[in-house]
């Protein structure tokens, strides 16, 4: 029973991480790649760690596994937010199949402050060509 639970957790976790890796290679732009790693890789690593907790079934391993899972779940979104923001300023383009970009008009490209409304066009934002007209 214990071995079956461990095996399932480990296999599903490893499979999810493999899917994340395939996604990182196949996805068309940085942001869709980050979608793949923040979801699949995070849950995959978490499941494998839970598998070790079930396998060893001791208090010290369980606390360590739970701490690791909690840490991964807490840090992955923060890292994604910071990296996505930095990449946006760097001018990493969105995939040409993207349908809308409501972020571009709202940054102050001088101070990097983000407003809640659309700003006048800034001369400092040439790195991001506006998307073509959104598809219906």
């Amino acid at each position: 029973m214990q071995a079956a639970v461990t095996g399932t957790l480990v296999l599903v976790g490893a499979g999810l991480m493999l899917i994340a890796a395939i996604g990182v290679v196949r996805m068309p732009d940085l942001f869709t790649r980050m979608q793949a790693t923040t979801k699949a890789a995070t849950l995959g690593a978490g499941l494998v760690m839970l598998g070790t907790a079930v396998h060893f079934a001791t208090f010290s391993v369980t606390t360590r596994a739970v701490a690791a899972v909690a840490f991964v779940l807490l840090t992955a979104p923060i890292a994604a937010h910071l990296l996505g923001r930095a990449a946006y300023f760097l001018g990493v383009p969105l995939w040409e199949g993207s349908v809308r970009d409501e972020l571009r008009d709202r940054y102050d490209w001088e101070t990097h402050i983000l407003a809640s409304e659309v700003r006048p066009e800034s001369p400092l934002a040439p790195e991001h060509p506006p998307l073509q007209t959104p598809k219906p």
Binding site: Q35, L43, L74, A76, G84, L103
Partner: peptide, 23 residues
């Protein structure tokens, strides 16, 4: 914002300075 990143199809990128709009 953190929960959104972990759930279907969405990824939090940034929030406006006045905390009114999440992108």
């Amino acid at each position: 914002a953190n929960l959104l990143t972990l759930t279907p199809g969405t990824l939090s990128l940034d929030i406006s300075r006045d905390l009114k709009v999440l992108y």
